[in-house]
Computed example of a mutant assay.
Amino acid sequence: MNLVFQEIVTVAMVLFAVIDIVGGVPVIVSLKQKHGKIESEKAAIAACIMLITFLFIGEEMLTVIGIDVYSFAVAGSFVLFFLALEMILGITLYRDEETNSASIVPIAFPLIAGAGTLTTLLSLKAQYQTINILIAIVLNIILVYIVLKSSSKIEKVLGKNGLGIIRKFFGVILLAIAVKLFAGNVKALFV
């Protein structure tokens, strides 16, 4: 167990970009308007449990189906690449089905702990220490909780343009991380 501050910051930034909770504020506000209230505590706790569980048993799940972590990390780098393109270009390549409830399902999954976040976790696990990833998850969930609690205020302060700028900025960071993950793991596939 080796706590490395730089790893925690890097992983936290990656997860922040992938989760994109600030970019999700318009969705959260829309769900709040449709359903009256979002249970921020439930959503944050459920997402945290999902992420931590997947961090610890995701690799075993892959082993059962015969996929190594490096292959998953390379596949994850492609997912991150396309998520980054969505954020930068403002396009939608992947669309979730509409739900009729603002419970844990649309917020905790897939908005917070969606396919991109789960893929990212295992990609990160191939490169960073588990304890640092765990701390980064908890830091992100705390931030998610704060954003969920104050989503209406954030939207008013940043406005549509501010949210767009933040989304594009983290899209570029995510794109660079996708390239790094690909480069760092693709070599292991050919060894």
Rank of each mutant, 00 (worst) to 15 (best):
L3Y: 14
S40N: 11
G162L: 06
I166D: 07
I165Q: 11
A113I: 09
E98C: 06
V14N: 00
A178G: 05
G23T: 03
S151A: 13
E7S: 10
K160T: 14
S150M: 11
V147S: 09
V14P: 00
A188F: 12
V79S: 04
A46C: 13
M13W: 10
V138I: 15
G164W: 00
A108K: 06
S151G: 11
V157W: 13
I104H: 03
G36S: 06
F54T: 13
A84I: 04
L85I: 13
N161T: 15
L124Y: 00
L93T: 05
L139Q: 07
A176W: 00
E86W: 00
Y94M: 14
I142K: 03
F78K: 08
T53G: 13
S77K: 01
L134F: 15
S150H: 14
A47W: 02
V105P: 03
P26V: 01
E98L: 09
F81Y: 05
A84M: 03
K180Q: 12
I112F: 13
A183E: 15
A75C: 06
I141Q: 14
K149E: 12
A115W: 02
A75S: 15
E7A: 07
P110S: 04
V79N: 02
V172Y: 12
E86L: 06
I141L: 13
N161V: 12
N100G: 12
F78C: 15
M61C: 10
G23Q: 05
V14L: 12
I131K: 08
V18Y: 02
G58M: 03
L62W: 05
I57Q: 09
P26L: 03
I19P: 02
D96E: 15
V147Q: 08
F16I: 01
V179W: 01
C48P: 01
A176C: 13
Y94V: 15
V172S: 04
L3V: 15
I141Y: 08
V64E: 04
L118W: 01
M1N: 11
G24A: 13
G162C: 11
F190I: 12
I49K: 08
A136K: 05
I154H: 08
I45P: 01
S77Q: 06
E60A: 14
V105K: 02
